[in-house]
Amino acid sequence: MQLKLIPLAALLAAGAGGALAQEVVKIGYVGPLSGQSAHLGTDTSNGARLAVEDLNAKGFKIDGKPVKFVLMAEDDAAEPKQATTAAQKLADQKVNGVIGHQTSGTSIPASRIYYNAGIPQISASATSPVYTHQKFNTTFRVVANDNKLGASLGDYAVKKLGAKKVAVIDDRTAYGQGLADEFAKSARKAGVQIVAREFTNDKATDFNAILTSIRAKNPDLVFFGGMDSVGGPLARQMKALGIKTKLMGGDGICTEAMPRLAGTTVADETIVCAEAGGVTPAQQKTMAEFAARYKKRYGQELQIYAPYSYDATMAMAAAMANAKSADPKKYLPYLAKVSYPGITGTIAFDPLGDIKDGALTLFTFKGGKKTLIEVVK
């Protein structure tokens, strides 16, 4: 089928106009709006909401007819069972598309429900390869997966940090364990010795036994697969136990909240993390403008995922415009072929639904602020 793509800007510029009744386009969002990761889920929800507000403010049309977007947000508390309940609720309400879920552990089980209902789903943050490798044609993501994230972190640990012995900890979630496994695999290939492979859970607060065991093995680096709500206390307890090595992790600990959660005793540049996404120097001005607009709208700094959920929502709208329909069956083929110039870069997908040419950004923390190291592709 030959797909004719219409620039989104041209459709936005057309204005609402006319006296036609507005079609309501329902966009679902699901993420942790409560619990330990609520600050991240709220951030992602805010990004999608800002996109919906922009689409409505600019008078978006589909096939020349005015439409009104509404965001229908559901809380999954980062729990797989609650995620499937939320997904089924949105499917029953016949939403036109879904932005979410936040974590791999919730996105993966929910994806089958959306696939069975024929509803396109774009995650702004789920990184487990399993999510897209199920080969559901309704499943997409706008960030690089853990294969790339783990490999890049492993490469950096060896080449830039000079690590030879590494301890690896994960929180047993699909995200945390998957990322830790990919990092360990990459590090081993580079000649690193994995001296400890430990695990905790995503609600844990006491790591004394794990860290005491790790300290005895004198690693050059500790890698943690999990979220900041666990990674922060882990870093604080590493310091208390005299473990002076750096802590490395993925985007789950690469948040503005991490210094607060880790405590002020954590020294500058002791945490190294990678965000599954990133902007080139040419995009930095656009990202800075978005961050300022986000802060003005919500009265707080953006965490990580808001720009990605914003772009995911806009890419979904662009596919609807190109298909001249918000019907999931009709716009889904256009979403698979979309090429949307977003804040975070061009949103375009490979045959599995993974982002094409996804970037990664390495960060550390200085003076309590997340500080860029480099963007890699």
Rank of each mutant, 00 (worst) to 15 (best):
T265E: 14
S186Q: 11
A187P: 02
C273H: 02
A167R: 00
I210E: 15
S229M: 05
D171Q: 04
E269F: 06
T200M: 08
A276E: 01
I194T: 13
T270M: 12
T245Q: 15
T264W: 01
R260A: 01
V272P: 02
G231V: 00
P233N: 06
I243H: 12
T270K: 13
K203T: 14
A216L: 12
M248G: 05
L241N: 03
G242E: 10
D171T: 03
L241V: 10
A167S: 07
E256N: 04
N208K: 15
N201Q: 15
R236I: 03
R236Q: 13
A196Q: 14
A190F: 02
I253G: 06
G231M: 04
G225Q: 07
E269M: 08
L179F: 00
V192R: 00
K185H: 11
G242I: 12
S186G: 11
D170W: 03
T245K: 13
C254R: 00
C254A: 10
R197C: 08
A240E: 15
M238G: 12
V230N: 13
P259M: 05
A204K: 04
G226K: 08
P259L: 05
P219V: 12
T264E: 13
V168F: 06
M238F: 11
K244Y: 05
T264M: 09
A190T: 03
K217F: 10
F199D: 15
A167I: 01
D228I: 00
T265A: 11
T245V: 15
P219C: 13
M258P: 00
S229F: 04
K185T: 10
Q177G: 10
G249Q: 02
E182W: 03
L241Q: 15
I214P: 06
A240Y: 09
V192M: 04
A209P: 02
L211T: 06
A187K: 00
G226L: 05
G176F: 05
T212H: 14
A174I: 04
V166L: 14
K189M: 11
A204V: 07
A274G: 08
A184K: 04
R172M: 12
A184P: 05
A204Y: 05
G242R: 09
T200N: 10
C254V: 03
V168L: 08
T200P: 08
Q177T: 12
V222I: 15
A190E: 10
I210N: 15
K244G: 14
D268V: 08
A174M: 03
T255W: 01
A257F: 00
G277D: 05
T245G: 14
G252T: 01
I253P: 05
K189Q: 13
G278C: 03
K185I: 04
E269S: 12
Q237F: 12
A174D: 09
A167W: 00
Y175V: 01
K244R: 14
D181R: 09
V192Q: 02
T173W: 03
K244N: 14
P233E: 08
D170K: 02
K246I: 09
Q177L: 10
T264Q: 11
K244H: 13
L211A: 09
I243K: 13
F207N: 13
N208F: 15
R260L: 01
A190P: 01
C273F: 01
M258K: 00
P259A: 07
A235P: 07
S186T: 10
I194N: 12
L179Q: 06
S229I: 01
G278D: 07
P259H: 07
F183Q: 06
Q177H: 11
G278Q: 05
I194H: 10
K246N: 14
C254I: 04
M238E: 11
C273S: 08
G226A: 05
